[in-house]
Design a protein around this nucleic acid. Sequence first.
DNA 1: AGGGACATGTAATTAGTTACATGATTGT
DNA 2: ACAATCATGTAACTAATTACATGTCCCT
Lengths: 201, 201
Amino acid sequence: MASKTTYKNKAGNLSMDVKTLCLGVLYQGEASGYEIKKAFEEGPFSHFQDASFGSIYPALGRLSSEGLVDCTQMAQEKRPDKKVYKLTSKGNNALITSILVPPAPDKFTSDFFFVLYFAELLPVAQVTLLIDQRIAFYKNILERMSECDITSVTAGRQLCHGLGLTVYQSSLEYLQKHRDSFLQKLPSQNITSTTSNRHAS
Amino acid sequence: MASKTTYKNKAGNLSMDVKTLCLGVLYQGEASGYEIKKAFEEGPFSHFQDASFGSIYPALGRLSSEGLVDCTQMAQEKRPDKKVYKLTSKGNNALITSILVPPAPDKFTSDFFFVLYFAELLPVAQVTLLIDQRIAFYKNILERMSECDITSVTAGRQLCHGLGLTVYQSSLEYLQKHRDSFLQKLPSQNITSTTSNRHAS
DNA sequence: AGGGACATGTAATTAGTTACATGATTGT
DNA sequence: ACAATCATGTAACTAATTACATGTCCCT
């Protein structure tokens, strides 16, 4: 049972692969590969999952040959043809099976945090820019998220949305609150490069 | 100029690789490969970066041959020998150069969120467990983080710590606040598998 | 006698990204 | 004329993970 190699994470669980991700998007309604990509870029999945064309199209091909999705070629006016994929009941069950296993731990990788960690090594102007861009980023995301209507979506989706909002909102507030005092704490005479031997106080 | 292939992200920036990550850990003080691993597992980097032995050891080897770190073999009593790596001034500059480029966007991948998104497909007991484990996870991490003393560390590190605390704290509060009402909103008669055709309201 | 922490390293395998290839239509 | 959006797909490439290999000491 269980498909061929089936990847295991540290906890021994199966990881969500692009195939499962596509099933999830398709559970919400039929879509083309291009539209699935958009769900990961701008849609509600964009905050916690990602996939590129190079992985989506082969995944849809495999799902199709496994009978988990149906594919319909659609001719469009003034647009290229598209292949619309639809979840089959077998695909529906496959999605349920996938989310039934305990989820793998979150993976968060942030170069922003890494750079911020070593802020004392950078010119103050650069750190200021870094933080201001991050503040702008949070503001932008919060604006877009509060615009979308979640009154008629599932409870799970609402909770995800609310959790996301909370995280972004509190991050924004924290940064805004500590920005000035943080920048003042940084050495005004930053070492941008070359010789530097002032490790101790 | 610029090392051989140099990877580029969507924004055209160079990504932090394991080599740079090691330089960052080593900036804080000399360490062995094993100790660097621990920094990503339990240390302050554990919240936003990760690396495994299979990438750390080869990275240290390359850093050594490039003159960015010095390696000293250390014999230990009742412990295997260890190789202690130390940042050279060339390595110090390499770290600065790396953090000078605009950081790549964060990558957050969460199977928890994905599963939560489809909570209506799961038995209520399973969703309850999922949320309670997540609450326990946040509590645990918050406890460990508040234990550690950050009074004598750099401003950047303090800000990272504070931002992390805020995110975990607000996530915990949100989940605790909405847990009960969310679980009540779920259909008590969950579909665990097989036939199910109630897509519309 | 078995598991866990300490300690270093290599090899196989992987899923995924980036870049390429192609082409119509619409807006600037 | 050029970039952007729509649309699908393949090939090359990569960094990194997992699993393997080896060994000591300590605790239960």
